[in-house]
């Protein structure tokens, strides 16, 4: 995998919030077809990294490349270029219906046929959304809202899908279901993914490679299967033995 060119590449990314430096020169690569995880504790800077890629927060230093080309800095251009995000806390549009939420996800697309195809894909992956097209998003369960947030991000037909804590606040059984769908999205459609998680074990089991982010710095990277058995990681992020 390493010989190919990365589809998404972050180089020395620095983000400041006033005097606080939330990212201190983080670099990472995502190769085509890969699932990459970033694990880290609360406040490590994971969401900041996602928001900096999406152009929601300003990049003070460093660069982001999509397919070797510098990625635009404005959110709407980033989405148009092929990177979309299922944000932390899901942020579905509560007063809009499931269908309207998905239509919002397809905002950058104009070809109706393409939109219909993407919609079909999302409904195949998440049949529960198909049953609820006219339900208000605010009345969905947490798990369904997460499915909607992922489906909505897929509607933009991204080349790289970013996911910020897809397991947040969900029951283990729903987490398993959602992570199984993520694997399917990756394998079926070959979409590369960058997943940010506090649930390190799940993230490492899902991903091919992973980075460990600690207070704004990448301190470790490697194959997920190896990191899963790394004693340091085990002690700091996996809290004891696997069940």
């Amino acid at each position: 995998m390493e010989e190919r060119n990365p589809i998404l590449s972050i180089k020395n990314l620095v983000v400041n919030y006033g005097a606080i430096q939330a990212l201190k020169g983080a670099s990472l690569d995502v190769y085509p077809g890969e699932i990459v995880a970033v694990i880290g504790a609360n406040g490590a800077g994971k969401s900041t990294m996602m928001n900096a890629i999406m152009g929601v927060v300003k990049r003070a230093c460093g660069e982001v490349f999509l397919d070797g080309e510098p990625l635009a800095e404005k959110s709407y251009q980033v989405v148009k270029a092929g990177v979309s995000l299922a944000p932390e806390g899901r942020n579905v549009f509560a007063p809009l219906t499931v269908m309207e939420n998905l239509q919002m996800g397809a905002f950058p697309l104009s070809n109706r046929k393409v939109i219909a195809t993407e919609l079909e894909k999302v409904f195949t992956l998440f049949p529960r959304l198909k049953e609820r097209t006219s339900q208000y998003a605010g009345t969905l369960s947490g798990g369904e809202q997460q499915m909607l947030a992922i489906g909505r991000a897929m509607m933009a037909k991204p080349r790289v899908l970013l996911l910020d804590e897809p397991s947040l606040g969900l029951a283990p059984i729903i987490i398993n279901e959602i992570f199984a769908e993520l694997t399917e999205i990756n394998q079926l459609f070959g979409i590369a993914m960058l997943v940010v998680e506090q649930n390190a074990r799940k993230a490492l089991m899902l991903s091919n490679r992973a980075y460990v982010l600690q207070t704004g710095n990448i301190i470790l990277e490697g194959k997920s299967s190896e990191l899963l058995h790394n004693p340091e990681i085990e002690a700091a992020y996996l809290c004891g033995k696997k069940k």
Partner: peptide, 18 residues
């Protein structure tokens, strides 16, 4: 539709490519 989405959450509407 985008305006209705934005009146719920402008920032998230921006993330949709608006």
């Amino acid at each position: 539709l985008a305006i209705r989405a934005a009146s719920y959450n402008l920032k998230t509407a921006g993330l949709m490519g608006v």
